[in-house]
Simulated scan of single mutants.
Amino acid sequence: MHIIFEGVLPRHIKALVRYCISQKRFFTLQQLNTQISIFKYGYSEKMNKPRPIDRDHLTAEDKKIVQSASQMWLLGRLLPLMVGEFVPNDDPHWICYLGLLSVMVLCTAFEFTSDSIETLQLSIEDYLLRYNQLYPNSIAPKFHYLLHLPTQARLFGPLRHQWCMRFEAKNSQLKQFVGKNFKNLPKTIAERHQNYMCMHLLPSPGVERTNFLYSGDEIHKVDEYPLESFHPSQLKAIIMTTFPNKLFLPVSSCVKCLGQEFRPSGVICLKKPEDTDYPIFGEIRHVVVVRDSIYVAAQLYTTLGFNYHYYSYEVCLDNTYSVVLVSQLALYQVLHKYTINLQTLIVVRSCDHIEFFV
């Protein structure tokens, strides 16, 4: 987290935006900030919506772009969609930035293979060579730390399992317990945190708690729908095949499960990208809750290809449907679709596979 989201990424975005605005005049700072403000973020992204970039932070050498780590991560992967239409496809500064996005996708993957670690190492080396050629006076120690990440992944596994994101979130929560009492601060924080944990771990009267740290899935409003009411016919057929002994299905408006929020209009990945094939995505139409299992009924997309300039997959809706358990998703992350110049694009934020520039 500190190496990329609070080190390399904000420094590179600052250098890239200054290049695009001051040297090439591809767009203005006002245009960029307008895009940041009006961009149609997905429902799970709105809480991390980036702030507008201050001109002083952009021009001053001793200041950096002010964003939280989550905001910077979101801004980094959506920046191509915001301003990519203003930048030529063959611009070397833009290609260098897309190389950083490849490194980000691999570094935040939930799993690694020996091949993906090798790809990460080559991607980092290629990125640093390009960056050093374009911005020779903008190298910082955290750029060097990137070189150690492949070795760290080989020794300890996926890098996101070692980051500080959750520790920083917990630290932010503990700061809220302080209030105005600075006398014996450790005791105050300990007592208030224990009260907080007791409140959240206390089960309802007469109900035995079955888990400790995980409070369970959050299932919002549920309505029973007869199987005959599902449309179109292709969706009804796959639902009747999946639930042959059901006359009614409990459908929820929203389910939060293990940090992911499943609701209609969200995008899921049913098949991961591979060297010889593109991933398969689907747009959620219904979230079905059967006993303790959560299913999503999705309309599938046809993946037309990978648009390297926007660093996203170009897709179009198909007339096929699928019903799948959320626990069996190829990538356990809710994605979103974006429409840029009549193209429907999907950005994968973390995966152990990347598409290469051709």
Rank of each mutant, 00 (worst) to 15 (best):
H286V: 09
L16G: 02
L79R: 08
A330G: 08
S229K: 13
F248C: 06
F5I: 07
M165L: 13
H286P: 05
Y145I: 14
E61H: 08
K175L: 13
E355G: 10
T108N: 06
Y131I: 11
T344R: 00
C164D: 10
G157I: 09
C269S: 10
T151M: 10
R25L: 01
V347N: 00
A297R: 03
R291W: 02
L29A: 07
H220L: 12
V315K: 02
F27M: 09
I219M: 05
L81F: 02
T108Q: 08
G157W: 06
Y19V: 11
R209N: 09
H231C: 12
E218H: 07
I294F: 00
V17R: 07
K40A: 11
K256H: 03
G266P: 07
E224A: 15
D217Y: 00
S312N: 09
V323E: 10
R349A: 10
P232T: 14
I280G: 03
L128E: 02
L147M: 12
I284T: 09
H309K: 14
Q260L: 02
C96P: 04
L202P: 04
P141F: 04
Q328G: 03
P232A: 11
A190V: 13
V324N: 03
T320S: 13
F356W: 08
P205H: 06
K64S: 13
E85Q: 14
P80T: 08
S327F: 03
V87H: 03
I219S: 04
Y43M: 12
R166H: 09
I239K: 00
